[in-house]
Design a protein around this nucleic acid. Structure first.
Lengths: 137, 137
DNA sequence: CTTTTTGCAAACCCTTTGCAAGACA
DNA sequence: TGTCTTGCAAAGGGTTTGCAAAAAG
């Protein structure tokens, strides 16, 4: 139950703090691995999972794609580009009272919600306008 | 581009219409396979995907779990039991104007959104109260 | 007769797990 | 010490794909 401060843990958390674009576990692994080749993928997955369970980092579950991790752990929403897969924050106000409404209607004991937008990011909009169909960077 | 009316397609669609509990593709396959053993899993996956692309059925992307398909294709929300994995409809009103708000703030061209609640279903609440920790039916 | 769809099996992506060795408290 | 964490590799769940044969229009 007690979480230990291992070398790997602080490296992985530190790396996530640099990667502000909602990296996947695998992207975190690549970054970590580049500087610390001995750290394994399993450790990165396990550590990110622990950090998010402990509320230290955010865990963004994405429809249709790998889970992502977030240096910000408070509740906020995301939009995903259906062309290039990029994920950005959407800082609209948190939906107040909606969990209670859902609980009332469904009979579930509701603990939270996820809201995800789908769309086309500015970069892909631009490249679509000019070059017909090309995935953006 | 033209979608053909194959025997498999109508069997798969018909089966989904019977299964009103947001089955996974694999659950649809099991049901179809029970009566039509020659229909392959790949066909079920491909057909469900086509039907939902064409707006004939709904596609429910679930955080942390297999995609599900829905005999209802209009926009509505879902709640998922974190204990047993059950998925139910949550018939609260659709969030009006929220896509536009998200678009304004993010710069994305927003095409839609997904809202998913997490919680504990009535059955699991009951079994939790009595028998501590046991997944519900 | 042309194009889509099927069935099969293998491939694929993302993630988790068993286990023995190693690190932390 | 006693327990948690690591690294490795293998397994796992869910889904997609290449291909040749079959079916639809």
């Amino acid at each position: 139950m007690t979480s230990r401060n291992t070398v790997q843990r602080s490296i992985i958390e530190g790396e996530l703090r640099q990667l502000t674009n909602h990296p996947t576990a695998d992207e975190v692994y690549e970054a970590v691995h580049a500087e610390h080749p001995t750290i394994s993928k399993a450790t990165v997955y396990r550590t990110l999972s622990r950090l998010s369970d402990e509320g230290i980092i955010g865990h963004v579950r994405i429809n249709n794609g790998a889970d992502r991790f977030d240096h910000q752990s408070f509740l906020h929403y995301h939009v995903r580009c259906v062309r290039c897969g990029k994920v950005d924050d959407v800082m609209i106000p948190v939906l107040g009272g909606i969990d209670e409404a859902a609980a009332r209607i469904s009979g579930y004991e509701v603990s939270g919600h996820t809201l995800q937008f789908d769309g086309i990011c500015p970069a892909c909009q631009a490249s679509e306008a000019s070059t017909a169909e090309r995935p953006c960077a």
